[in-house]
Amino acid sequence: MQNTINIRGKLLNLSTPKVMGILNVTPDSFSDGGKFNNEKNALLQVEKMIAEGADILDVGAQSTKPNAQKISAKEEIVRFGKIISQIKKEFPESIISLDTFYSEVVKFGFDEGIDIVNDISAGQYDENLLKTVAETGLPYILMHSNSAYEIMHEKQIDNDIILEINKFFSAKILELNQFGIVDIIADPGFGFGKTIDQQFQMLDELQHIAFEKLPILVGISRKSFIYKSLGKTPLEIGEETDKLHLKALEKGARILRVHDVKNAKRTIFEYSDNVQDTVL
């Protein structure tokens, strides 16, 4: 498995799992909309996440919850403002992942100092996205998703979910390589167009996703397949999420994308201790 990615000439080693802390600069995200959509609050949240052990900061300006209102690239850029450049100024060693599916926003983010492109669309929502990512030379997070924003939450897969994800990844990895994109992280797309049963199967068989060739990112934090199956709210499933994060790590996840950095970091320590005990 590829365990390092090249970020602007520096290698990030993923042999030890990493925590990606979520920073939503949106007014309408499903669990924290409006909390961090100004520079001051965003920087305070970044400081908190870094103090708790975040290895990567994932910054996004577009809500992708069900029935969200799609905004333009221009509006995303307005929402970001100077937040990215200010994070880099205040925390110069931070690694920033930009959550967008717009090529224009990738160009903006690159100039502001981003380090990774996190694209929920797999290049399907903007025909210039992959070309633009290739031009930046940045690592790319490839997520399994439906073919258009408007149907991203439609449950369209009747066949085996692992087989379908791998077929999708196989074709997309070839396309990315043709563009010259070689530093790729695979995200199976929890919360996007899968049934509850399919998502639990994805966790059970995570080790088979992307043919064990690419580092896997798991984004299950506050996702509905967990809290709806338990009859709880997104903020009431911390303990259950920790257990599922540990399972994901045991199945090979290299990055946990989370709202609660402190708990995820503790889970990684627990996983590492278990691995060490097994080796001994």
Rank of each mutant, 00 (worst) to 15 (best):
L249Q: 01
F225E: 00
L217D: 03
F225S: 00
L176V: 12
G180V: 11
I226P: 01
D273I: 10
S221E: 04
I181K: 09
P234E: 11
I255W: 02
R222M: 05
F200Y: 15
L249F: 05
L217P: 05
E236T: 09
R257W: 10
G252P: 08
P188W: 01
L206G: 05
R266F: 04
T233D: 08
K172H: 13
S229K: 03
P188R: 00
K232N: 06
L214N: 13
K172M: 15
D242Q: 12
Q198G: 06
P188A: 07
Q199H: 08
L174I: 15
N177V: 09
E175K: 14
E270F: 05
S224A: 12
K262A: 10
Q178L: 12
D277T: 15
T195A: 04
G193S: 10
I209L: 10
R266W: 03
F269Q: 11
L214C: 13
G219V: 06
I226A: 02
E205S: 10
M202C: 06
D242G: 07
V279Q: 09
L217C: 15
P234C: 10
F192D: 01
S272I: 13
K213T: 15
Q199Y: 03
G231R: 00
H208G: 04
N263G: 13
K213C: 14
L230I: 11
Q276N: 12
R257H: 15
G189L: 02
D260V: 07
R222E: 03
G191I: 00
I268D: 03
D242T: 10
E205F: 08
L256F: 07
D242K: 07
H208N: 15
A171C: 13
D187C: 08
D183A: 12
F269V: 10
V261T: 09
D183M: 09
V279N: 14
Y227W: 15
V182N: 07
V218A: 04
F169Q: 14
S221D: 08
D183H: 12
F269Y: 12
L256K: 05
I209W: 04
K265A: 05
G238Y: 04
K247M: 06
T278L: 11
